[in-house]
Amino acid sequence: MAEKTVGTPLVKSGLAEMLKGGVIMDVVTADQAKIAEDAGAVAVMALERVPADIRSQGGVARMSDPDLIDQIIAAVSIPVMAKARIGHFVEAQVLQSLGVDYIDESEVLSPADYVNHIDKWPFTVPFVCGATNLGEALRRITEGAAMIRSKGEAGTGDVSEATKHIRTIKGEIAALSAKSDDELYVAAKELQAPYELVRQVARDKKLPVVLFVAGGVATPADAAMMMQLGADGVFVGSGIFKSGNPEARAKAIVQATTAYTDPAVIAQVSRGLGEAMVGINVSDVPAPHRLAERGW
């Protein structure tokens, strides 16, 4: 009889396909995870501190306590993601053993290896990785990432970097697909990515995996703008639980992500949400403290 094969590339990228059109929310407790689920999150990202707190408190940011991840997995029925440090393959092994549904190899945590990212192919659990441009996205996919999120600048509430990164990736894909076949060899060299993958993107006019946006989304209008710019879905980190009314804001961002082309709906859901997270302008963040520059 037919065999079951777990951890195939198709099953890994397939879960991300199921998340399309949805919002993935950062949570630091089981109670927050329940609030996110009740608000309509398609998945939650379990972590110890949201990026805004990592930014303000400083220090080395690492994988969460396994107890916390267990509690969050027990609290919700939607997929649970968790972050491992860039290159920290043992944190990833631990997260897989805990039964998380996706691992985010994330620049929000302190990198564990400034040369190599995790070799993601041997894992059964899928990985999502950040990217600021097409070449970076394709390098992560080459290493086995089954989902890409543009990085933005986490923990700021300033959407400008998220805008820049999704526009860059989309623009580079459009430029690539306008090239003739004989130009793709040099394009692969310039993108520092394998030729076969470059040719596939040029032909399909899209990445071979789902592309979400992250890093600075704080309002329903921010989320809808990312969707109009071509994102498949949205990560919201500090923007929800650092705001005045997390329940209402979470619901509003979910609705705006679905009805992203309808300004009347976005206006309606934006009413009476209380204070958005205070935020910090990316231009005020000194360059060494910009998280998007981690990873390569």
Binding site: A2, E3, K4, T5, V6, G7, T8, L10, V11, G14, L15, I73, S77, P79, V80, Q96, G99, V100, D101, Y102, T124, V125, P126
Partner: peptide, 16 residues
């Protein structure tokens, strides 16, 4: 029953 096979590490391909 939702999620009846467990989490994502139990997700699989087969022929049926």
């Amino acid at each position: 029953e939702r999620n009846a096979f467990g989490g994502q590490v139990e997700s699989f391909e087969t022929v049926i």
